Simulated assay, not measured.
Amino acid sequence: MLKRLFATRKHPCMPGLNTPEHITVNLSGSVLSLKLPPHYSSDGFEAHCEPIDTMNIYDPTGYSGDPMGTAVFNRKRFISRAWELFGPLTRLRNIGSISFVAVVERIDSLPEGMSCFNPNHFEQVINRLMFKMGPETPQIDPKVAPVNWCTEVKNDCLWVCYEMRKANDGDPNSFAPSQFSSYAVTPLDDHHYIRLMFHNLGYKPAEYSNRFVNSVRDKVLNSVTLTLSEYAQQRKVEVQSQWPDATISPQRQPYNWVYPEWRDGDTNKGERHVVITQYHTQPPKFHL
């Protein structure tokens, strides 16, 4: 029985993994194409956001943001679905799940003259986003990032992939090693980019859980193609001509963040829900 249970954990299955849907989304003339397994919930819950065929990324309506911290990011979701993982002995009870979300994100705090089409500037944008999701969200479990950072150029578009993981709390029984998020990001114009997110709730042993959820992620990402709009292509050429030697780090090590001191805000007095009272690691600053 133990051997069979161990095999279950090593080789989970996911409904629809081998019968993905081909999805195409027009984002103000830039066309994203990818293959996604269909949404599946054993409890019957529908997907939060079925794929949107066409989105005007320049329409300010529909964007949501996080006012925390000193950098301003806003996002508009265009796909959101969930996948459940099963083992042959678990019957109708899942042993893990993956939540997939695709958003267009806009950074409003990028200084004038900087562009996401400049690889160095884009890395700074991602650095600022990671800090916002890490130390500037101190009420959530501390994070470690970037983990497994890598870059790839597909169809002349730069993609950056990395993971954010929970910091090791020293608990040998913790599920934290198999519960993490993966991201793939690519520019759409000077201030907009696509972010594809995979939020994993895995099982133990983490070695086998992570191997499987990462294989699902890689299968999706290998199907992705992005064709930039004529405007975006022209703007990209202009930026590359302005900064011909700009580069992005091919590999990265995680930050050694020290989380800030904070308190619960008094919303009746107009404060945010979380008030950071003292930074220990300072927010990264943008530089040309």
Rank of each mutant, 00 (worst) to 15 (best):
S80A: 11
A145F: 03
F286G: 01
H121P: 01
N210S: 13
H199P: 00
G270V: 04
K154F: 02
Q124C: 04
V153G: 00
A7S: 10
T19S: 14
N268D: 14
H199K: 12
I52K: 12
K204Y: 09
V220H: 11
P111F: 06
E50M: 08
S99P: 00
L226E: 05
F131Y: 15
N120H: 11
Q233F: 06
A102R: 01
L85Y: 00
H280M: 08
A232S: 15
F175W: 11
L34S: 04
Y259C: 07
E21Q: 15
L5H: 08
L85Q: 00
T8L: 08
D53S: 13
R272Y: 06
N127R: 06
Q253T: 14
A206Q: 12
T137Y: 01
R75T: 05
M55G: 05
T225R: 15
T186A: 15
R81L: 03
A102C: 15
T247Y: 08
R77N: 06
Y208G: 08
M55P: 06
N148M: 03
N26Q: 11
R128M: 07
R128A: 13
Q282G: 04
E21R: 14
R235A: 15
A167N: 08
S97N: 08
E46M: 05
G134F: 02
A206C: 10
R235D: 14
A167T: 09
P88V: 07
V153C: 02
H48Y: 04
